[in-house]
Design a protein around this nucleic acid. Structure first.
Lengths: 113, 113
DNA sequence: AGAACATCTGCATATAGTTGAATATAACTT
DNA sequence: AAGTTATATTCAACTATATGCAGATGTTCT
């Protein structure tokens, strides 16, 4: 019997994959339309190498899939619902206000509010 | 004007926080009921020190908050909706089947299917 | 004061991200 | 068809970040 901690590893892996700003950007881009690597690189101002590596990770978790069109590798979200999490996360952040990075920061906030 | 990449950092930080099996377990536990550190440690089979540290991180992002009751620090989810993401992630994982860890693994899959 | 509950700090280790060069593959060009 | 360009991936070295652990330090209750 797998422990609940073992079971928790799979969902946490998904979140870890989304837990990188570049990959959030890529998902945002792909939410609008399927795109090839270069288009993504241009839109995100990231070097193609990096985009490709992030996509490989997303692919290995099947959050995206790839189809080749000539020399272009066109990527597509397999689970557009997951992109929705980003929208919800942004809403949460707006409600919450800035995260406190430390206890000191938190105390400072109290002091001024 | 902050670049979109900068903006993407905040949501990705949230996902990163959830992107750890221990923290997924803790959120699952707190979804059921508010609990103190020791109770969480017992339920998750994690050392209290570690639980405390994970909670500190969750707290710094305001995913949980703390109220003291005597010498117990009782934690509570501030955003129960976020716990719902875990449920959705598990559903996605079940649909998807196992993630492919490498291209070779993927090729092997093709070969046998 | 002593015990229970939890946090904090500092260090060692592990994991993840970045970069540039090398490689692969398909499409042009002549 | 041979060579060149465009597109993308892979690899290896390096750097940065996160985790885990052990021990010291608060707090509150009795």
């Amino acid at each position: 019997m797998p422990s609940r901690l073992t079971v928790a590893r799979e969902p946490s892996d998904i979140f870890k994959v989304i837990g990188h700003p570049d990959r959030v950007r890529l998902i945002e881009e792909l939410r609008v339309a399927d795109k090839d690597v270069n288009t993504l690189a241009v839109h995100t101002h990231l070097p193609p190498t990096r985009v490709s590596q992030h996509l490989a990770l997303l692919r290995s978790h099947r959050l995206v899939d790839e189809k080749r069109e000539g020399r272009h590798h066109v990527y597509r979200l397999t689970q557009p619902e997951i992109a929705q999490w980003i929208v919800e996360a942004i809403r949460f952040i707006e409600q919450r206000g800035p995260a406190s990075l430390s206890a000191e920061a938190e105390e400072a906030r109290m002091l001024w509010s």
